[in-house]
Amino acid sequence: MGFKLLSKLLVYLTASIMAIASPLAFSVDSSGEYPTVSEIPVGEVRLYQIADGVWSHIATQSFDGAVYPSNGLIVRDGDELLLIDTAWGAKNTAALLAEIEKQIGLPVTRAVSTHFHDDRVGGVDVLRAAGVATYASPSTRRLAEVEGNEIPTHSLEGLSSSGDAVRFGPVELFYPGAAHSTDNLIVYVPSASVLYGGCAIYELSRTSAGNVADADLAEWPTSIERIQQHYPEAQFVIPGHGLPGGLDLLKHTTNVVKAHTNRSVVE
């Protein structure tokens, strides 16, 4: 069995187990497998329904001669939608809004960016022009300005110390501490036991640490421990890039980060 097929099978099995364990909360999309990078042309966006009122959005972007996937989250909030992270750029984010209108038909009224990198804030200006209120932590807003990236308009308070959590509509926002970046936030959907790890969490097929220019490698494993301790009931975990899975993604990420750190020390 090929690795790609095995990865998709694991996603399907995880979703099936969740649907059985929580039949009222989960209505997993039966329309197909989780979209992969090879299936999404740059400039297009796919939506994948995880649970009743919960979707991931998947886009792709060219970077350094390669094409990478990027995940975000959409959560229903009454007759409105909360968006977590842009679709990595203005063109993708405009396509995301169009796809949401086509498939869901509810307005996106608020959006949260989970850290300051372009795959999370690139497209904020498109959201703002569409009347979406954009939010991020003060740290993310400051770092985005320093980096020359787009800056969300509103500040999220109460997320300055490791372990801080605040309720934001249908989700809980959690600051686990520094990891992929010093400002990275985690998003949890309690009604569906869905954990969105953003770039602080890796997919299972990833074996290298990737972009760690703004990471705190020493603190990252401790931050992941905080996530595990705060959300032990999480059933569906979405990484910032690639295929979702279960809580095993947290341990896998820790292993990859520690291996990278150990290699760096040896070198």
Rank of each mutant, 00 (worst) to 15 (best):
8 K>R: 09
255 N>K: 15
229 Q>V: 04
167 R>M: 04
139 S>F: 01
74 I>K: 01
36 T>I: 12
150 E>H: 03
69 P>A: 13
216 D>L: 08
209 A>D: 07
22 S>F: 05
218 A>R: 10
173 L>N: 00
128 R>F: 14
79 D>S: 07
127 L>C: 14
163 G>D: 09
13 L>A: 10
142 R>F: 14
239 P>C: 02
205 S>A: 06
142 R>W: 14
86 T>G: 12
258 K>R: 12
264 S>W: 04
236 F>E: 12
8 K>M: 12
158 G>K: 13
265 V>K: 13
206 R>A: 04
253 T>I: 01
228 Q>T: 15
210 G>C: 14
245 G>F: 03
93 T>H: 01
71 N>P: 00
244 P>I: 06
225 E>K: 03
11 V>M: 12
155 S>Y: 12
79 D>I: 15
215 A>C: 14
164 D>Y: 04
123 G>S: 02
134 T>I: 04
266 V>G: 12
36 T>D: 14
18 M>Q: 02
214 D>C: 12
5 L>M: 04
56 S>N: 11
219 E>W: 12
107 P>H: 15
105 G>C: 05
217 L>T: 03
79 D>E: 12
65 G>M: 13
8 K>P: 05
160 S>I: 05
45 V>A: 09
77 D>K: 05
222 T>G: 09
191 S>M: 13
253 T>S: 13
104 I>K: 08
56 S>I: 03
250 L>W: 12
169 G>M: 03
54 V>G: 01
167 R>G: 04
178 A>I: 04
214 D>P: 13
165 A>H: 04
177 G>N: 00
219 E>C: 09
24 L>F: 14
100 I>A: 05
179 A>D: 00
63 F>Y: 02
114 T>L: 00
5 L>C: 12
224 I>H: 02
258 K>M: 13
267 E>F: 15
256 V>H: 14
46 R>P: 07
244 P>E: 13
57 H>G: 11
114 T>P: 00
156 L>H: 04
121 V>T: 04
243 L>E: 10
102 K>V: 04
231 Y>W: 05
187 V>S: 11
259 A>K: 13
120 R>N: 14
95 A>R: 08
264 S>I: 13
61 Q>H: 04
161 S>N: 03
138 P>W: 15
92 N>P: 04
101 E>H: 15
238 I>Y: 03
101 E>T: 10
220 W>L: 12
197 G>D: 00
4 K>G: 03
111 A>S: 11
41 P>F: 04
183 D>W: 01
9 L>S: 11
110 R>T: 14
90 A>R: 10
42 V>L: 13
145 E>R: 09
20 I>G: 08
22 S>P: 14
263 R>M: 04
88 W>K: 01
173 L>A: 15
117 H>L: 00
77 D>H: 04
169 G>E: 06
112 V>H: 01
78 G>C: 08
99 E>C: 02
46 R>E: 04
102 K>G: 09
23 P>Q: 07
67 V>Q: 05
33 E>D: 07
45 V>N: 15
224 I>L: 10
80 E>N: 09
138 P>G: 14
47 L>D: 00
261 T>Y: 03
252 H>F: 15
259 A>G: 09
1 M>W: 09
106 L>I: 05
135 Y>M: 03
161 S>M: 06
141 R>T: 04
187 V>M: 01
258 K>S: 13
229 Q>F: 15
43 G>Y: 05
76 R>I: 08
